[in-house]
């Protein structure tokens, strides 16, 4: 990993703050893509932010089909060559939950939960499964050896393995045979100051924002109405929270 010394990091953050302030003055309000300002392209991410999602299952009319379709389109998965169903890519899964006693059932999209203490990062022998400073958990496919330990470790079944040679990948989402892949919170869009694709597809049901900022929409909503983690008992402090489950 590239380690910048603290002087440079501080200097860059000051430059970033002034640049960000200047940008917010000059940009018209309707040009702001999301509430948190995009960092300058050449500035490294810091742990000042922690990105998170809040998914309101009650407001997802189709149980998450729209956001899954948006994810497939953004990252180009879902139509890959395969020899059996078990090889399907699963960046997001639609999970149907039924309460046995009452028969009440609903569906929710389950993807990488972007844990603070991610089991997949712990078990990776090469450091390919990694957590970025801003809380995004992703696979560095350059050094992934395809051992699939992370797939075994993930309690959410969030990861999948590419079994066949792929062509015509999306330019911002490289995928290839022999590597593990999962939701990366549309990291390329976040770095540009945009929302993840699933959020744009269901803006009423999914909120994206900075969990570290107490004034962000997601933090306020979580403070007022709460949001639960799936398998909170594991104590992973997930970045993806749900309402209505």
């Amino acid at each position: 990993m590239n380690n910048f010394d603290s002087y440079r990091r501080n200097f860059l953050s000051i430059v970033g703050i002034t640049a960000g302030a200047a940008a917010s003055v000059t940009l018209a309000p309707n040009l702001l893509l999301r509430e948190a300002q995009a960092k300058p392209d050449d500035e490294a991410v810091t742990d000042a932010k922690r990105w998170g999602l809040l998914i309101n299952v009650d407001k997802l009319e189709d149980g998450g089909d729209a956001c899954i379709a948006a994810c497939k389109k953004e990252h180009g998965w879902g139509d890959d060559p395969k020899s059996n169903q078990a090889q399907d890519a699963q960046w997001v899964r639609k999970v149907k939950v039924t309460e046995k006693l009452t028969g009440h059932s609903f569906s929710l999209p389950v993807m990488c939960q972007h844990c603070e203490t991610a089991p997949c990062v712990d078990v990776c022998p090469t450091g390919a499964s990694m957590k970025r400073a801003d809380g995004i958990v992703q696979v560095n496919k350059h050094i992934c050896i395809g051992c699939r330990y992370c797939m075994m470790a993930c309690p959410y079944k969030a990861r999948s393995f590419v079994h066949e040679t792929l062509v015509d990948q999306r330019p911002n989402s490289p995928r290839g045979k022999g590597t593990v892949e999962s939701c990366n919170l549309c990291v390329h869009r976040i770095d540009k100051g945009e929302n993840p694709a699933c959020v744009d597809s269901s803006p009423d049901a999914i909120v994206f924002g900075d969990l570290n900022d107490p004034d962000s929409t997601i933090s306020k909503e979580l403070e007022q109405n709460g949001g639960s983690q799936i398998r909170a008992d594991l104590g992973l402090n997930t970045g993806v929270r749900y309402q209505g489950i």
Partner: peptide, 10 residues
Amino acid sequence: DETMYDGIRT
């Protein structure tokens, strides 16, 4: 590496 770890996308 800059892009993977630090999100630098120049």
